[in-house]
Design a protein around this nucleic acid. Structure first.
Length: 325
DNA sequence: ATGGTTTTTACTGCGTC
DNA sequence: GACGCGGTAAAAACCAT
């Protein structure tokens, strides 16, 4: 077994460093209990500090290859090249082939050579335009990442969002639409597909595009890519509202129950899932004697109090007919 | 563009702390 | 008297056609 010495160049190390810092600064939250996530490099896992849920396992270790005993060794033994991320682009490394059919000495090329160079130019151009798309992609992915961490969405949602974005890019859905808009729409779709939906309001709060453009591009992307996104399940909003309002697990369970029986009664159809969820949480808090005002609920759910009132009446009725006490 | 549905806005009255 | 709650009417937003 031979130890192969590898050297990373300065620039790569730098970007690797800043990237890792950025990663560390992200506030991640556990999808189950909303607790803080802690990464455990030893076991290659990311776990929730509160409930111990393993959010991600078998991670790639981006650390140095061997143990290092002093600073110089540490530099030498860093991994080969920069870690592969979806965020990389070519850093101006693309090739340019001159248009003049001259060789390095300035002499004209043979016709055979000219043809060869022409073919090379064609291909090189193809790759370069691909690169420009990559740059565009990088920007979009950065944007997705920023919004996702602002919304506390887990890694897999970002992953899905970037896949959706890539597809949109491949299908030439971009012309006429802003990168921002499509990126935001991708994230919105991804969040819903992953069962951790964020409302349009929440998304547009962290995005640079307004709600109208977002809904328009979202619809467009969904239609063109043939994505199937079911209407969001009200229950998927419950845990977040509950934790935002500091309510008990009991209340959360109750809220789910209410929403469940409401679904059986067919109250759901046509109503906004967010409103239903908010009403469910409010009603549940009432039933478990925990104090929350309609106003507070309407704040965290960004829904009007009136809607909460209307929904929670319906909810209670439905639960009465479903399970008469 | 249109009409039907849902949500929001704004306002009012009631009870409690 | 401020606050939480419930109700209503009209306006606005949304969605399918």
């Amino acid at each position: 077994m031979t130890n192969i010495r590898t050297y990373t160049n300065e620039r790569e190390k730098e970007s690797e460093e800043t990237e890792r810092q950025e990663r560390a600064e992200e506030q991640e939250h556990c999808p189950e209990c909303g607790g803080r996530l802690v990464s455990d490099a030893e076991h290659a896992e990311t776990v929730c500090a509160d409930c111990g849920l393993v959010v991600e396992e078998d991670e790639i270790d981006r650390g140095p290859e061997w143990r290092a005993f002093d600073a110089a060794e540490k530099d030498e033994k860093s991994r080969v090249g920069a870690p592969t991320t979806n965020m990389m682009h070519d850093q101006g490394l693309s090739t340019n082939i001159g248009w003049q059919d001259k060789d390095a000495y300035g002499k004209a090329l043979s016709s055979r050579q000219r043809q060869k160079m022409q073919r090379l130019r064609t291909w090189n151009e193809r790759f370069r335009t691909r690169d420009s798309k990559e740059r565009n992609l990088k920007q979009a992915l950065g944007e997705i990442d920023r919004m996702a961490s602002a919304l506390g969405l887990p890694e897999n949602v970002r992953e899905t969002a970037s896949v959706i974005y890539r597809r949109a890019l491949e299908e030439d859905l971009l012309p006429g639409r802003s990168i921002e808009g499509v990126a935001t729409a991708s994230l919105y779709a991804a969040a819903r597909q992953a069962g951790t939906p964020r409302s349009l309001d929440e998304i547009s709060a962290v995005s640079r595009v307004d709600k109208m453009e977002l809904t328009r591009t979202y619809r467009y992307v969904i239609r063109e890519l043939g994505l199937e996104v079911q209407p969001a399940d009200p229950e998927s909003y419950v845990p977040r509202f509950v934790s935002d309002l500091d309510l008990s697990d009991e209340t959360e369970r109750m809220a789910r129950e209410l929403l469940d029986s409401a679904r059986k009664e067919g109250v759901h159809s046509g109503k906004s899932p967010v409103g239903l969820a908010a009403a469910g949480v409010y009603a549940a808090a009432l039933l478990t004697n925990e104090k929350v005002t309609q106003n507070e609920v309407s704040e965290v759910a960004s829904i009007s109090e009136v809607t909460i009132r209307n929904r929670y009446k319906e909810l209670l009725e439905a639960s009465d007919t479903a399970a008469p006490a």
